[in-house]
């Protein structure tokens, strides 16, 4: 269970050659989860690795974690935290994507600008963004905006590089064809550059949304009074391992929900793309 963005291919896509039916696959997937929980349960409840009390201090037990998760989810307080994290994620994504698109286009269409700023962009992107969190807290306070800023710095560069690439790597034949059709610069932007950039952007959409969330949660973790990251940090500071795991479980569910929504949007906007398994 990862709370970080996934860059690899989706597991939930239709298998290319259906080895097992969809239902069978689902059953197998659930089985893996159950086996994982079972191992966790056996190792923490029975004295195999040591005294259960001691083990449980470090690893809790699945039943405890599920109980706590259920308790948290039915408590209206958690929804407030989720709402804060969601706000930060969405704002970071929207601003980061908008900035990335704008600058991606600008730099891709202006070779001089791109050449001059190239080393600075590379340097800024190489910087581990976590070190910025305290500075952002200083600048923007402990509210949501310092987290939005952190998420922004993560999302911006992903979208920027992809849009830049997308505009630069427009097929020259498609471009020349559009020009021969008499399209103006504006027409080219709208019918050629923009869709091409969008494709590239969407190819990194999952990563970008994931990073927006990472920015939000890490920001909360390092200093705030609300949000999922804060909840986890709070539990950690009193060695409440059950609370930490419950927070992680909630975060995971949250990520899966957001990721599913992104997939739905992506499928709608990129209908023209060849499907995996179909002919290229």
């Amino acid at each position: 269970m990862r709370a970080v963005p996934r860059e690899d291919d989706d597991v939930d896509d239709e298998p290319e050659n259906a080895i097992v039916s969809r239902l069978g696959l689902l059953a197998l997937q659930i089985l893996v989860g159950l086996v994982g929980f079972a191992i966790w349960h056996v190792l923490t409840v029975y004295p195999i690795l040591g005294a259960p009390k001691q083990i449980q201090f470090f690893f809790s037990t699945p039943v405890e974690v599920l109980k706590r998760t259920w308790m948290e989810m039915t408590n209206p307080e958690i929804w407030g935290h989720l709402w804060i994290t969601l706000q930060e994620t969405v704002l970071a994504f929207v601003f980061g994507a908008a900035g990335g698109i704008a600058f991606g286009f600008l730099f891709a269409r202006n070779a001089l600008l791109a050449a001059v700023f190239d080393p600075y962009i590379k340097a800024a992107n190489a910087l581990p963004r976590v070190v910025l969190a305290p500075i952002f807290a200083l600048w923007f306070g402990l509210g949501i905006w310092s987290k939005v800023a952190l998420g922004f710095t993560l999302v911006f560069f992903i979208v920027f590089f992809n849009v830049y690439q997308g505009v630069r790597e427009v097929s020259p034949v498609v471009l020349n064809n559009a020009r021969m059709l008499g399209m103006s610069e504006r027409g080219l932007l709208r019918h050629v550059y923009w869709p091409s950039a969008l494709t590239w952007m969407f190819s990194s959409l999952h990563t970008a949304v994931g990073f927006a969330l990472v920015g939000a949660v890490v920001g909360e973790y390092l200093g705030s009074s609300a949000g999922l990251g804060y909840k986890i940090h709070e539990a950690e500071s009193v060695f409440d391992v059950t609370g930490v795991f419950a927070g992680m479980l909630i975060l995971t569910v949250f990520v899966i929900v957001i990721d599913t929504i992104v997939t739905l949007i992506e499928n709608r906007l990129l209908v023209w793309r060849p499907q995996a398994g179909g002919q290229g």
Binding site: V173, V174, N176, N177, G182, H191, W272
Partner: peptide
Amino acid sequence: GYLFQADALMPWKTALDNVAVALEP
């Protein structure tokens, strides 16, 4: 008008849109 040797249609537009967009200019 130029019919290119390589595929030159806009992959993100349907056949209809690819043809219709030629009238936009």
